[in-house]
Design a protein around this nucleic acid. Structure first.
Lengths: 240, 240
DNA sequence: GTCTATAAGATGATAGAC
DNA sequence: GTCTATCATCTTATAGAC
């Protein structure tokens, strides 16, 4: 497990709750959340075009017309799914790296910083219930989407990425700006592929490694990326 | 530019040629190739479910029924698109790393090996014409797909990945098997995100870095991944 | 808020003429 | 090999009853 100065996931409203498999007549907002949960699950598996409103409604246990009632067009439903948990990830991560930077002070290390940054997505995917696993896979697919994926990632996640890069600059003060951005780019690719848990690694390794072993994945990623950042950010690391 | 002991792309049959924008009455096989080119372009942008047979036929300048005549079901068309250039990438890469390992002998370095491995996809995406760019983006999306993506990547690319890992083992003889597989996993994520050219990096960096600058991307990736492999493969690198 | 009913069009796939 | 015509089904979305 990654061990930064960040708290374990705690109970919190809406997005942090598990989903009942069928619609309950209970609290207001339940129907809306059920639709979001169903859409999240299906979008994460089949992509935007691979899911129909009918399928979402059926999995949520509600009528088709209700999906339109709550979210309007299909694309608005997708955006609502994406936004819901992005806010949690982002506030968790910004808080974690700020807190780490403050507490570590001059002893700040690249490994510590990356561990703090990566803690939230890994922890939620591990312990947040199936919705968070679906969301992680959805982000993985979106990051690789050449049409609207880059734009969505920019909109929801760039502020957090910029804050990370600012703090990395303190640890690697001699680094050039572009080296840091390319370093982050490589980290982002590794992270989102991992969050997708596609199972390829399991087959490639003959079962020796498991895509779902996010504890191992997190530790490997911290060390891999920290060394990678140092290698591309060192002075004279690249002829201009 | 990555400089391994590998040749630049050379003219070769079928998959290596650019596509005429409209169907030509010319050589036999032209219709089939036009359909593959159109499907490759559209699948890479919108994914499997985001493309209709009618759109493929229209972009290829042929009749809808011809798509079924040549490829049968839609999924068979997708597989044919994926297979076509996978064979080129794979033979290029296996030849490149084998040739590098033989010529370098005991002087083999991790950087040299990774440069040889990465040369073919980057070089084709840079100089192979639009079809190769589309293919690169298609692989990027497929690698992140949790339903059939992992399986397809396994089927088409694992033999090549295994050969790379064998050779890395010679450079890092003390590495544990699982360390090598997780290292490759991180490299694969970085590589496919790069090949997707989603434009996110351009916005994140305020224009300082460009997704399409594959020359820079390749150099950064070689150094980032080589350092990353060393960090996760060193002796005592991870408590068991 | 929730449902029924339905509009208005697109979809994958095929049969059969040429 | 290529085209026309078409089937049976599914699609998003809305209007309106309750």
């Amino acid at each position: 497990m990654i061990k930064p100065d960040a708290p374990a996931p705690a109970a919190a409203p809406s997005a942090r709750r598990g989903r009942p498999s069928k619609k309950q007549a209970g609290a207001p907002g339940d129907t809306r959340e059920s639709i979001l949960d169903a859409a999240e699950d299906l979008f994460s598996k089949h992509g935007f075009y691979g899911v129909t409103i009918r399928e979402v409604a059926r999995e949520a246990g509600v009528d088709t017309a209700l999906v339109h009632y709550y979210f309007g067009a299909k694309r608005a439903l997708f955006d609502a799914v994406f936004l819901r948990r992005a806010e949690v990830w982002n506030s968790d991560r910004v808080n974690a790296i700020n807190r780490y930077a403050e507490s570590a002070g001059a002893d700040m290390t690249l490994e510590g910083l990356l561990a703090a940054f990566l803690h939230s997505p890994f922890e939620w995917a591990l312990k947040g219930g199936p919705g968070w696993k679906h969301y992680a896979a959805l982000v993985a697919q979106t990051n690789a989407n050449p049409m609207f994926g880059g734009e969505i990632m920019t909109r929801y996640f760039d502020p957090t990425a910029r804050r990370l890069i600012e703090l990395i600059k303190r640890v690697l003060p001699e680094a050039r700006e572009q080296d840091l951005y390319w370093g982050y780019h490589n980290l982002s690719g590794a992270l989102t592929l991992t969050l997708g848990e596609t199972g390829r690694l399991d087959r490639l390794s003959g079962g020796l490694c498991r895509s779902g072993d996010l504890d191992a994945a997190g530790e490997y990623m911290v060390r891999f990326a920290a060394a990678g950042f140092r290698a591309v950010c060192g002075p004279g690391s690249r002829p201009d």
